[in-house]
C-alpha cells in the first residue's frame, strides 16, 4: 500500500507548486519584526519564546485544515509516517524547504514508550540575516515552528510535546525540533440528551 503511494517528496513539490508564494525577504523581515516587537513589549527572553510558541499553536490549529484540504497526503498509519509527512510535505508546502525527519529510539526504552522524531531544518528561511545579540542569546527564535507543529497535530488527535533542540542562531549547524508523542486523543461522542 505504502509503496504505491507517490513518495512524499513529490507530494510536497506538487503542494508547493499550487500554493501562493510570498517574497522570502518580506516574510523573513516580517517575522523578525514580530519577534523583536514581542521582545520589546515583554522585555523578557523567556516570555518571548513562550509567546512565540503560543502564536505558532494558533497558526497550527488553523493551518492543519488547509494542509489536509490541499496537500492530498492521505491518512497516516503511524506516528513515524506522520513525521515524514510533516517533514516532506507540510514544510515544503508552507515554507518551501524540505526538512529531514529522524526517528529517535531511546536505547533502553520500554516497548510501549511513546514514539518521537526530530525535524532537522538545514535551510531555515526564518533565520536569514538574523544574529542574536548577546542579551537574548537564549531566545528560541524559531519557537513559532514548534507551536505550529504542536497545534496542527493536536487538531488531528495527537497531543505532542515540541522543543527547539538546536538552532543555527545558537551556533548549531542546523535547526532541530524534537516532536514526541504524549497521548493519542480519541474523540468522545456524547449524546445530545446528556
Amino acid at each position: 500500500m505504502a509503496a504505491q503511494r507517490p513518495p512524499y517528496q513529490r507530494l510536497g513539490d506538487v503542494a508547493f507548486s499550487k500554493v501562493e508564494k510570498v517574497n522570502a525577504e518580506l516574510f523573513t523581515l516580517t517575522y523578525g519584526a514580530v519577534v523583536v516587537q514581542l521582545l520589546k513589549d515583554s522585555e523578557d527572553v523567556e516570555q518571548t519564546s513562550i509567546q512565540l510558541e503560543k502564536m505558532g499553536y494558533n497558526i497550527g490549529v488553523r493551518i492543519i485544515d488547509e494542509f489536509l484540504a490541499k496537500a492530498n497526503a492521505g491518512t497516516c498509519t503511524d506516528f513515524k509516517e506522520t513525521g515524514e509527512v510533516i517533514a516532506k510535505v507540510a514544510f515544503r508546502m508552507f515554507l518551501g524547504v524540505t526538512v529531514d525527519c529522524r526517528h529517535v529510539v531511546e536505547p533502553n526504552a520500554p516497548a510501549d514508550a511513546m514514539p518521537a522524531f526530530h525535524l532537522i531544518i538545514v535551510d531555515n528561511p526564518l533565520v536569514d540575516f538574523v544574529e542574536l545579540p548577546e542579551h537574548c542569546s537564549t531566545l528560541a527564535y524559531c519557537n513559532l515552528l514548534c507551536g505550529v507543529v504542536r497545534g496542527a497535530l493536536e487538531m488531528v488527535g495527537m497531543r505532542v510535546e515540541t522543543k527547539l533542540l538546536k538552532d543555527t542562531l545558537w551556533g548549531d549547524e542546523h535547526t532541530e525540533i524534537s516532536v514526541s508523542l504524549k497521548e493519542l486523543v480519541h474523540e468522545q461522542y456524547r449524546d445530545d440528551d446528556e
Binding site: L29, G32, A33, V35, F129, V130, E131, P133
Partner: peptide, 19 residues
C-alpha cells in the same frame, strides 16, 4: 546591508557583531 536587515539591529546603533 546584511547587518541592517538583521531585525535586532536598530538604525544608528553601533555594530557589535563579531561576524
Amino acid at each position: 546591508v546584511k547587518v541592517l536587515l538583521n531585525p535586532f539591529h536598530s538604525a544608528g546603533a553601533p555594530i557589535r557583531s563579531d561576524t
